[in-house]
């Protein structure tokens, strides 16, 4: 049996509200293998997004463990977690989260800049640019390189966000309702694109969604309710 690229073991997460402790995740066990697509389904408040943030090392678990390639990572110092997040994880969000001051190309290039110093980036800026352009062409935005987010449609913005998530060549993509803000036709196009890239690159995909039809396209569906995996 191969080691899963991403694994959560007995993950608990609770938030404090005054003196009250509100449990959000209650003993989640989940693993995602390389090249596998997993859909996280559940009603609002089930804890899907919180689990995604914990798995993406944005939020530490209250208890339990998170492993990347068999290595425990949830207890690492903040700097190492950030570096790991950059190297191993690509995020795609419902609201795209593009930086409005930057063009599509600059938004994608920013992913490359995150882990390099000014001098290191200066030495590789041409290759980085070529790679970002290739990535944007792959998502069908070769003619929209220098447009700002406000000049792009919702679908185009999400394609830019996908290109940005993939530029650093992560092993896992965590997508939080990537089609939640798109009309059905555009959503279908974005999903087709995501699955096509996932197959080409053999990425692990963890998808948070409310959409049953989208979930059925994944290898596996994990249902959540009140902070626990029900099926």
């Amino acid at each position: 049996m191969t080691t899963p690229v991403l694994q959560a073991t007995a993950v608990h997460k609770h938030y404090r509200l005054g003196k009250r402790e509100i449990p959000v995740l209650r003993g989640i066990d989940l693993s995602v293998a390389a090249g596998e697509t997993v859909a996280l389904l559940g009603a609002s408040g089930a804890g899907k997004s919180t689990l995604l943030h914990v798995l993406g090392l944005l939020d530490p678990p209250s208890s339990g463990e998170v492993h990347y390639d068999g290595r425990r990572v949830d207890a690492l110092p903040i700097g190492q977690r950030a570096a790991l997040r950059h190297a191993q994880v690509g995020f795609v969000f419902q609201f795209y989260h593009l930086i409005p001051e930057l063009t599509a190309l600059q938004n994608v290039l920013l992913a490359r800049m995150m882990a390099t110093s000014v001098f290191a980036y200066w030495g590789q800026r041409k290759q980085a640019r070529q790679k970002a352009i290739a990535m944007l062409e792959q998502v069908g935005l070769g003619d929209r390189l220098h447009h700002r987010p406000t000049e792009l449609s919702g679908g185009e913005r999400q394609r830019v966000a996908i290109a940005r998530a993939l530029l650093a060549e992560p092993k896992v993509v965590l997508a939080d309702e990537p089609t939640g803000n798109l009309d059905s036709t555009t959503a279908r196009g974005v999903v087709d694109l995501m699955f096509s890239i996932q197959q080409q690159r053999g990425l692990a995909f963890l998808l948070v969604t409310h959409d049953e039809r989208l979930a059925q396209r994944c290898h596996r569906v994990v249902r959540m309710q009140d902070g626990v995996v029900v099926r």
């Binding site: 700097g79 570096a83 997040r85 950059h86 995020f91 969000f93 593009l98 992913a111 995150m114």
Partner: peptide, 10 residues
């Protein structure tokens, strides 16, 4: 938020 998601630190 997105800067942190992309590997940024506080």
């Amino acid at each position: 938020g997105i800067l942190c998601a992309m590997g940024g630190t506080p």
